Lab assay of single mutants.
Amino acid sequence: DHWHVHIDGERIRLDGASEEFIRTLEELIRRGTDARELKEIIKEYLR
């Protein structure tokens, strides 16, 4: 599956992301997590 998110107007691909990770991201977004912080979390995950 190819997922991607838009954060700060930037399109970030989440290739190979699990549904669990996507749900976690959605939860963080709902909580109002800062965009820079979200991008860091995604970069760490994709390593």
Rank of each mutant, 00 (worst) to 15 (best):
D1R: 06
D1L: 12
D1E: 12
H2S: 14
H2T: 08
H2F: 06
W3E: 08
W3L: 15
W3D: 10
H4I: 09
H4S: 04
H4W: 07
V5A: 09
H6T: 13
H6C: 08
H6V: 13
H6N: 12
H6I: 15
I7K: 00
I7E: 01
D8K: 05
D8T: 04
G9E: 04
G9V: 03
G9A: 03
E10Q: 05
E10I: 06
E10Y: 02
R11M: 15
R11V: 15
I12D: 00
I12P: 01
R13Q: 14
R13V: 13
R13F: 14
L14D: 00
L14A: 04
L14H: 01
D15F: 10
D15Y: 08
D15V: 13
D15A: 08
D15R: 10
G16F: 12
G16E: 07
S18G: 11
S18N: 13
S18W: 04
E19K: 11
E20R: 06
E20D: 12
E20K: 08
E20G: 09
F21S: 01
F21G: 00
F21P: 00
I22E: 02
I22F: 08
I22W: 06
R23T: 07
R23C: 05
R23W: 06
R23Q: 12
T24Y: 14
T24C: 09
T24S: 11
T24K: 14
L25W: 03
L25G: 00
L25I: 13
E26G: 07
E26W: 06
E26V: 09
E26Y: 06
E26T: 09
E26P: 00
E27L: 08
E27C: 04
E27R: 06
L28E: 05
L28T: 03
I29R: 03
I29F: 05
I29S: 03
R30G: 10
R30N: 11
R30V: 10
R30I: 11
R31P: 01
T33E: 05
T33M: 10
T33S: 07
R36W: 14
R36L: 12
R36V: 13
R36K: 14
E37Q: 14
E37D: 13
L38A: 02
K39I: 09
K39H: 13
K39S: 06
E40P: 01
E40A: 13
E40F: 07
E40K: 11
I41D: 00
I41R: 09
I41Y: 12
I41P: 00
I41H: 05
I41E: 01
I41F: 14
I42K: 00
K43D: 15
E44K: 07
E44W: 03
E44N: 08
E44A: 09
E44Y: 02
Y45I: 13
Y45L: 10
L46T: 06
L46C: 01
L46H: 08
R47S: 15
